[in-house]
Amino acid sequence: MRFTLNQLEAFVWTARLGTVHAAARQLHLTQPAISHRIRDLEEELSTQLFERHNQRLIVTDQGRNVLVYAERVIASAQEVARLDLTRTITGLVRVGVDESCAITGMPLILKDIKDTYPNLRVDLTVGGGSQLLQKINNHELDIALHTGQSSQPDVTSQFIGLTRHQWVAAPGLFPPDTDFLPEQAMGHRIVSNAPPSTLHDSVARWLVTDGYAFDEFSSCNSLSLMVSLVVSGHAIAMLPASITRKHVEAQTLQLLRAKPEVPDVPYYFSYLVHHRSDTTTRFLEIAERNLKAIGFFVNP
């Protein structure tokens, strides 16, 4: 037996109001649409639901039996529609993010999560891309926002955008509006994450285009500290644009015009495939919305 909620709704309102015309007005449908739904329901139930009497439709004895259950179904459907779905996402989700996302995006993302799903608890881990990739591969995280891409069969890495790495220096250290070459970079102290890391790989790939090996650098595991070192003139660095944007706009950092250009870096939303799909889907929606709002990704 296959009848629909729409058919039951047409039947219930016609029974309540006495005419197809009134039911159609109530449901914002045409009269033929109401008549068609009632006829299909009668065929499905193999019973006559109405008799016509003085321009009105009267529910038959069998129809009254059906009406009792149909009204219960409609009432249940209305209860479902009134459910507070924001409270159905509960429990704990273990989330890992890299530092660029943690600094620029996570305050907004966590506030959005708290406002939308107040019963969902977030256990946050901040680390480098390789560290987060290892943690989610080892099932120590449920979700990760990072530059890594897992090849594990039980981890899905979904591409969500491109991020940009930029060379920056203290203002006045290099002439403005001129190309910044690998040869010039090698003449200064470079601060970067230790390998394996996405930033270190980006610097190494850029330097090798001119035949230079990235062997000597000052290692630092904090993007915030790296920014401070560059602002103070102690070093130059390649850093995520999301981290340096405010400093460049405030002219406390000079954006260098790298030649060749630094390739954009893919950014991924990784998650354990066995984790609850509703939590994963809704967390991704919130993360993408907020990261796009702050300009975390390169505009397409």
Rank of each mutant, 00 (worst) to 15 (best):
M1Y: 04
R2F: 09
L5T: 08
Q7T: 00
E9Q: 06
E9N: 08
G18F: 14
A22H: 10
H28D: 10
H28Q: 08
L29A: 06
T30E: 08
I34W: 14
I34E: 12
S35K: 09
R37S: 02
I38S: 07
D40V: 01
D40S: 01
S46I: 03
T47S: 10
Q48E: 02
F50W: 05
E51V: 14
E51L: 12
H53S: 12
Q62R: 15
G63M: 06
R64C: 08
A70Q: 06
A70W: 04
E71W: 04
V73K: 14
V73G: 09
I74N: 03
V80G: 15
L83G: 07
D84H: 11
D84V: 07
L85P: 07
L85A: 15
T88A: 06
I89F: 15
L92N: 10
R94F: 08
M106E: 03
P107V: 03
L108R: 11
L110I: 05
K111H: 06
K111Q: 14
K111R: 13
K111C: 07
D115Y: 12
T116R: 12
Y117C: 04
Y117W: 09
P118F: 07
N119M: 14
V122N: 00
D123P: 10
L124D: 02
L124P: 01
T125C: 04
V126W: 02
G128T: 03
G129T: 08
Q134P: 08
I136N: 14
N138R: 08
L141W: 07
D142M: 13
I143D: 06
H146I: 05
T147W: 01
G148Y: 11
G148V: 09
T156R: 15
T156S: 13
Q158F: 07
F159L: 07
F159Q: 05
I160K: 02
G161Y: 09
W167T: 00
V168F: 07
A170Q: 08
A170L: 07
G172A: 07
D177F: 11
F180D: 00
L181Q: 01
L181Y: 08
E183L: 07
G187W: 01
I190W: 10
V191S: 10
S192M: 11
S192T: 13
A194K: 05
S197D: 06
D201L: 09
S202H: 06
A204E: 03
R205G: 10
W206K: 02
L207E: 03
L207K: 01
V208N: 11
T209E: 09
D210L: 02
G211I: 04
Y212I: 13
A213Y: 15
S218M: 12
S219P: 14
C220A: 15
N221S: 11
L223T: 01
S228E: 09
V230Y: 01
S232C: 02
L239D: 00
L239W: 04
P240Q: 09
S242L: 12
I243V: 12
K246S: 05
A250I: 04
Q251E: 10
Q251R: 09
T252G: 03
T252L: 02
T252S: 14
L253P: 02
L256Y: 00
R257N: 02
R257L: 00
K259A: 03
K259T: 00
V262Q: 00
V265I: 11
Y267N: 01
F269G: 05
Y271H: 12
L272E: 13
H275Q: 08
H275E: 15
S277Q: 15
S277F: 04
D278I: 09
T281L: 12
T281R: 11
E285A: 11
E285Y: 08
E285K: 13
I286K: 12
E288K: 07
K292A: 12
N299V: 05
